[in-house]
Design a protein around this nucleic acid. Structure first.
Length: 128
DNA sequence: CGCCTGACGAAAC
DNA sequence: GGTTTCGCCAGGC
């Protein structure tokens, strides 16, 4: 391990009162704040953390969603168009849409209906 | 240690 | 207006 590489990241992220939590944990935390019956986008979470350009990382972080406690409602996170792009990573894939429907969100053809209505902006709701 | 991929997003073409 | 490319950063090979 002599070579340290750039595994570490400066500290671009950092909102107010943030802890030493890694980017992943920050994403999980925000995702947990999503109220039931609402959804948000990866970019919105990234923007909330200050890394709106790294929306991809948010999706990556979701790879750990479900393996952490408490479980993260990754099913409430969709891309900016309201499409369940990550449903394929669920098991079974249809579970994501099913969970959303159970919360009152209408999903059709892997797409959230009334997305604009159920859209929950962490930056706005959290007052960031 | 370098190249590719990836649950996004926005701009360029 | 649809398709393609870049940017972002991290992890896998």
């Amino acid at each position: 391990m002599a070579s340290k590489k750039k595994t570490e990241n400066p500290k671009q992220i950092k909102p107010s009162g943030s802890r030493d939590e890694s980017f992943f944990e920050l994403v999980f935390e925000v995702a947990r704040q999503i109220p039931k019956g609402r959804v948000t986008s990866y970019g919105a979470i990234a923007a909330c953390l200050g890394t709106k350009s790294s929306a991809r990382m948010v999706g990556w972080a979701m790879n750990g969603a479900g393996r952490v406690k408490p479980k993260v409602p990754a099913h409430r996170v969709v891309n900016r168009i309201g499409m369940l792009t990550g449903k394929q990573h669920f098991s079974p894939p249809g579970k994501m849409a099913q969970l959303l429907k159970a919360e009152g969100i209408k999903v059709k053809n892997d797409q959230v209906q009334n997305f604009q209505q159920v859209f929950w902006d962490p930056v706005k709701e959290l007052g960031f």
